[in-house]
Simulated assay, not measured.
Amino acid sequence: MDSTLENVAYSPKNVFILSGQSNMAGRGGVEKHHWDGIVPNECHPDASRIFRLSAHLHYEVAREPLHHDIDAKKTCGVGPGMSFANAIKDRVEAIGLVPCAVGGTAIKEWAHGQHLYVNMVKRARAAMSHGGEIKALLWYQGESDALSQHCVNTYKANMEKLIHDVRADLHLPSLPIIQVS
């Protein structure tokens, strides 16, 4: 199977949005702005089952670093997306991962109408328009919101609003959100 697959030629049915900040974007193995290239066994690619939506909205075989063209201003390494996909791949048909995470971002940058939010929804809609069904949004973010007491105090309300907005904009009122913060 070719490592680059146009989304017209192939479109995974089970789609998972990967969003948040650096831990989701993948900083495993990154030291001093350099990725060591080591991929743990649980993160190895499966060219027949796990795909990622590139920055150009084309599906390709998923391999680490998943966010290399999304969080492009920073060095990406291993994140939780591939290990998650490998853990569930035998229970579902082919998986489409939609990387959206950007390191160092605060939840206010993910608010409705902000660039990161708009891009995430655009990428999710692209995955849906090619026959994919969004199964969940995996959210790993929060460190930037622990820098002040105000951010800590408003995080819950901001996260609830984000969940409400994503579900409304994608017309998925019961979309599962898997959150780590």
Rank of each mutant, 00 (worst) to 15 (best):
G81C: 02
Y140K: 14
C151G: 12
L66P: 09
R63F: 06
H115G: 06
A126G: 12
V152P: 04
A157E: 15
G81I: 01
K74E: 13
I70M: 08
L66N: 05
G113I: 04
A87H: 12
V152H: 13
G96N: 08
S54L: 10
E133S: 15
T154C: 06
L97D: 14
N86F: 09
A87F: 09
T154Q: 07
C76G: 10
A55Q: 13
G81N: 02
V121P: 04
P80T: 07
C151E: 15
V121D: 05
P99L: 01
D90E: 15
A85D: 10
E60Y: 01
K135A: 12
A126E: 15
G103S: 11
K135G: 10
D71S: 03
L137Q: 11
L138R: 08
A62Q: 03
Y59M: 12
A106I: 02
Q141S: 05
A124Q: 11
G79I: 00
L138Y: 05
K89V: 00
G132D: 06
Q114L: 02
I88W: 04
M120K: 00
L57R: 14
A111D: 06
G142H: 06
R123A: 10
H56E: 15
V152F: 13
H150C: 09
N119V: 02
G131F: 06
S54P: 06
G142T: 03
P80N: 11
N86C: 07
M120Y: 03
L57Y: 13
E143K: 02
Y140W: 14
E109I: 04
G103T: 09
A94S: 11
T154F: 05
C100R: 10
A62D: 01
T75F: 01
G113V: 08
R125A: 12
L137I: 11
L66A: 07
S83V: 07
G142W: 08
R125G: 09
D90R: 14
A157H: 14
G103A: 11
V102M: 09
F84L: 08
H112R: 14
H56K: 15
I107C: 00
G113H: 05
M128T: 08
K135N: 11
P80C: 12
D71W: 03
G96Y: 09
I88S: 08
L137H: 09
P80E: 10
L66S: 07
E143L: 06
M128H: 11
R63H: 13
N153F: 01
E64M: 04
L137A: 12
L116G: 05
H115M: 13
D145G: 03
L147A: 13
L97M: 14
C151F: 13
N86Q: 13
E109A: 12
V92W: 12
K108C: 12
D69F: 00
E64G: 02
V98R: 09
A146Q: 15
A124D: 09
A126C: 15
P99N: 01
S83E: 13
D71L: 02
A136H: 00
R91I: 10
L138F: 00
F84G: 07
V121Q: 05
G77D: 03
G81R: 04
F84H: 08
A136S: 03
V92R: 10
T154P: 05
T75Y: 02
V121K: 02
Y140G: 13
L97N: 14
A136M: 07
A85C: 04
I88E: 08
V98K: 11
T75M: 09
V152G: 10
T75E: 07
V102H: 07
I107N: 05
V118Y: 00
K74R: 15
